[in-house]
């Protein structure tokens, strides 16, 4: 497999790091601004897909499928475990909200500037879902890139 041309490499290098940062921002502020785990994970996976398409040879050394699938399974297990932790009241009960613990600050009603230390289990679930989605979509692109030979 030949590498891409210089134009593709330079433009993708300019895009990848801002896209990764924007995806992390979307995941971290999922309970304050539009967006959340799925959206941020899709943006991170897009950045990694650009990396994979532009730098196919180096990327297949850096991103390994076993590590990504292990991370995906761990994230899904964390998400399910976090939902089971609220089982004292009901499944998916938000047991951290308004409790004063981590992410447990109460929110005043109506428009407010937005406090990062709120919303209970929602930021943690955002993190887990973002990890799961980004790893899953990257595995799809990586598997399709590796399978089969080049064209005849």
């Amino acid at each position: 497999m030949n590498g891409s041309s210089v134009i593709v490499k330079v433009v993708s290098l300019a895009i990848i790091l801002p896209a990764l940062t924007f995806g992390l921002y979307i995941i971290a502020h999922g309970h304050l601004t539009p967006g959340g785990g799925f959206q941020g994970g899709a943006i991170i996976a897009s950045a990694l897909a650009i990396f994979l398409v532009a730098f196919a040879k180096q990327a297949s050394k850096t991103l390994r499928k076993n590590l990504l699938s292990a991370l995906e399974c761990l994230a899904l297990l964390g998400f399910i475990g976090l939902s089971f932790l609220g089982l004292g009241k009901s499944f998916f009960f938000n047991f951290l909200a308004n409790s004063g613990l981590i992410f447990g600050q109460a929110v005043p009603f109506g428009p407010n500037p937005g406090f990062i230390n709120t919303a209970g289990v929602i930021p943690l679930m955002n993190f887990f879902v973002g990890l799961e989605v980004s790893c899953a979509l990257t595995i799809i692109v990586l598997t399709m890139l590796k399978a089969g030979g080049d064209k005849k």
Partner: peptide, 19 residues
């Protein structure tokens, strides 16, 4: 619907194009 817009832009315009 900004949530759906972000998802559509990331999945439709980048990931499916890469695939």
């Amino acid at each position: 619907a900004p949530d759906v817009a972000i998802t559509e832009a990331a999945v439709g315009a980048c990931l499916s194009t890469a695939i």
